[in-house]
Amino acid sequence: MTNYILRDENAIYYECGYSNDNALYLHLGSEAWLITDSRYTVEAKEQVRGAAVVETADLLKAARQLLRSRGVKRLVFDPKEWSVQAIGMLERKLPHLHLSPHPDFSHLKRMIKSEEEIALLKRAAELGREGFETFAAYLNLPGSQRSEKRLHFEMKAAMSHYGEYDLSFDPIVAINANAAKPHALPTDVVIREGDLLLVDAGLKYRRYCSDRTRTAFVKEGFDFGDEQKFSSPTIQKAYDLVRKAHDTAIRKARSGMTGAQIDRLAREVIEKGGMGKYFVHSTGHGVGLDIHEMPYISARGKTIVEDGMVFTIEPGLYFPGKFGIRIEDMVVMRNGRAEIL
């Protein structure tokens, strides 16, 4: 049985059902410990499953004592979670311990979701869709001088269901030319009828994330549905191409494909439409306890996609100084095919 040590909050939560911002998880053979400080031990003892809770003011020292007492010779860790300083402290104090780096150790364990996890992700996606509907209703109210900054604030409120849920990430709310930046920051630009509006947002339901993007034509009574009619033929052509790429990738994705092959399904549609150079990011990414997990649906994605994996399909086109378009949904692989959550 692998001996390993974890520092990442979500990696720890996955193992024992609890984590905080100052904890370590140590797993040695059939034993496991959640190591944390006195601020968290009462809560930890109530929630941790399958591990003993160790209270200490020095997490690394407590971990070293457990490692020394068990005579551990080899310990797996994810170098993406740890600082050079922290690993150095373990190595110097335990010279006979071999620290074995395994990048993405927890993400690899978490790639295939359980039915319970899929249900949580589905609920997160449903609540996220409701957040978009609430935001659309707000935008359809009479008003003036609503800047991207104000809309960004209102989207955070709508997506969180007014404080009931945490957000998966800071939402993107971008109008016209600002939407040409895939990770646009809100500006003082004011929304007006006839504008293009791109919104990318998600929430957490019992710690599991949602992620959704829609691009819409702003007019009276508009919504964030897939059917959008823009006044500009140029924008409409680009939108229809992105939608086709999105739908094609979901329809043709199969278990057994690599992430790169699924990425290719969307990218080929864009390239055949003559706009390949404007699709500047990958087609998708895994979603779970982290907003970005494995598998990665990209040109370099070597992971074989299997049933139970959850990821996004989100092709986009970005025309600097003009406009940008992205359509994104979360899918789960079931019975060999992609099912929208």
Rank of each mutant, 00 (worst) to 15 (best):
residue 16 C to Q: 04
residue 240 D to N: 13
residue 128 G to F: 05
residue 64 R to N: 01
residue 336 G to F: 10
residue 184 A to M: 08
residue 279 F to P: 01
residue 199 V to W: 05
residue 70 R to Q: 04
residue 223 D to V: 04
residue 50 G to N: 08
residue 42 V to Y: 14
residue 177 A to K: 15
residue 17 G to Y: 07
residue 212 R to E: 15
residue 199 V to R: 01
residue 263 D to G: 07
residue 95 P to T: 10
residue 30 S to L: 14
residue 180 A to T: 02
residue 80 K to D: 00
residue 37 D to C: 08
residue 57 A to M: 08
residue 131 G to Q: 11
residue 54 V to L: 13
residue 339 E to G: 03
residue 336 G to N: 13
residue 81 E to Y: 06
residue 292 H to M: 12
residue 88 G to C: 08
residue 35 I to G: 02
residue 216 A to H: 11
residue 46 E to H: 15
residue 165 Y to T: 02
residue 179 A to Y: 08
residue 282 S to C: 12
residue 276 G to E: 02
residue 320 P to M: 03
residue 297 I to R: 01
residue 294 M to W: 14
residue 170 D to I: 03
residue 168 S to M: 03
residue 320 P to E: 00
residue 59 L to G: 03
residue 75 L to S: 01
residue 6 L to G: 05
residue 180 A to R: 11
residue 223 D to S: 11
residue 17 G to N: 04
residue 67 L to E: 01
residue 18 Y to R: 00
residue 87 I to V: 15
residue 48 V to F: 06
residue 241 L to F: 12
residue 123 R to K: 13
residue 38 S to Y: 09
residue 176 N to R: 13
residue 223 D to L: 05
residue 234 T to W: 15
residue 126 E to I: 08
residue 112 I to F: 00
residue 173 V to I: 10
residue 53 V to S: 02
residue 51 A to L: 09
residue 32 A to L: 10
residue 288 G to T: 12
residue 338 A to V: 13
residue 291 I to F: 11
residue 327 I to S: 13
residue 265 L to I: 07
residue 154 E to F: 11
residue 31 E to C: 09
residue 36 T to P: 03
residue 150 R to Q: 12
residue 71 G to W: 07
residue 313 I to K: 03
residue 284 G to F: 05
residue 174 A to S: 05
